[in-house]
Design a protein around this nucleic acid. Sequence first.
DNA 1: TTTTCCATGTAACTCGTTACATGATTTC
DNA 2: GAAATCATGTAACGAGTTACATGGAAAA
Lengths: 190, 190
Amino acid sequence: MVTRDERILLLLGLLAAEQQHGYQINEFIERNLSRVSQMPRATAYSMLSRLERAGLVDASTEQQGNRPPRRVYSLNEAGEARYLEMLVDLLANPGFREPPGDHALMFIDSLSRSAAVDALQRRISALDSELAQMESSPSHEVGMGVGLAIDRRAALLRADRAWFVGALERVRVGLPEQPATSSHVEPAHG
Amino acid sequence: MVTRDERILLLLGLLAAEQQHGYQINEFIERNLSRVSQMPRATAYSMLSRLERAGLVDASTEQQGNRPPRRVYSLNEAGEARYLEMLVDLLANPGFREPPGDHALMFIDSLSRSAAVDALQRRISALDSELAQMESSPSHEVGMGVGLAIDRRAALLRADRAWFVGALERVRVGLPEQPATSSHVEPAHG
DNA sequence: TTTTCCATGTAACTCGTTACATGATTTC
DNA sequence: GAAATCATGTAACGAGTTACATGGAAAA
């Protein structure tokens, strides 16, 4: 999951490099950026046409031989300005994004100790294999930025793993064998 | 941003504690969980009625004096089962969630070195104040789980901060004074 | 007694996704 | 020459959000 703004940035950034048609953009994202950004193809089309309506990109229709005609998008001045604005903004401002699993953690004491321990152990293994996969992956990356993004992700995964190892201990010690009858989170007392 | 599943878990979890009406749930989330989960009020109503359609919760209409009538939701057996299932699943599986800012990092070499350095420094400060705020916050939390979630978030923030400090150095050294004319990410060469 | 706030949602709209379309090309 | 795949999207649906509604209670 990724915010809309980040997806917009991605599209603008790709168009900043050169004008492209939707299919081409989708191919590029899938081929080269799959580890950094998931975006269903139809979503890209959808967003491109909205960017056009918003006046950030210009579009024209083009045809090659008897292939289906295609819409070619290019960044206009407004788009370029917007791109740099958003880029700086998204770099400078951490935006809240709750880490995956936090909601589940909140309710962990609905589980018996053994169930909780088991789930946490599985999570740790999953994190391990993700990390292993990242470290073994090609990384003949496009540009410096993509490398940075991936490196960061690995760093955060390692930190998360470490945290979960600690949490496992805490849960082993602190969680009762059986969960209380009713869930722990008490209703507002006011 | 949070996945739909996590929001569903949240609602089911709150209803597992006791039956509640929409307004009450919204109040609770805002008052007690605002740091763990943002959810616009209308979204909760919307999801509750979908959970009802899905057969996971039962609902009845109730009226107090001449207040507006309200829909009271309670978890049924299917819902309870689903709740525990989802809970274990979300605990055990890390789900990919790109860290906020990764997209921007990808395009960092569209910026001049000084602009990039400046943005990164601002981000680090922002992370610092977020951390400071977390550490100074009440923390007379409801239940063990919420404490865990917050603690984890702090740990990840610290790791992220550390990573950005390193990145700042790399950018200072590695980024050219001026960005190349055209953006760095080359179009697919195939 | 006018204004503001509380309690309780509903309606309308927009965005993103899942499914489907379609004619050329390559493969068997 | 039938089957699969490529190239290119479009349409319809469902989910989430922004805006709005409404009548009593509390405050001024």
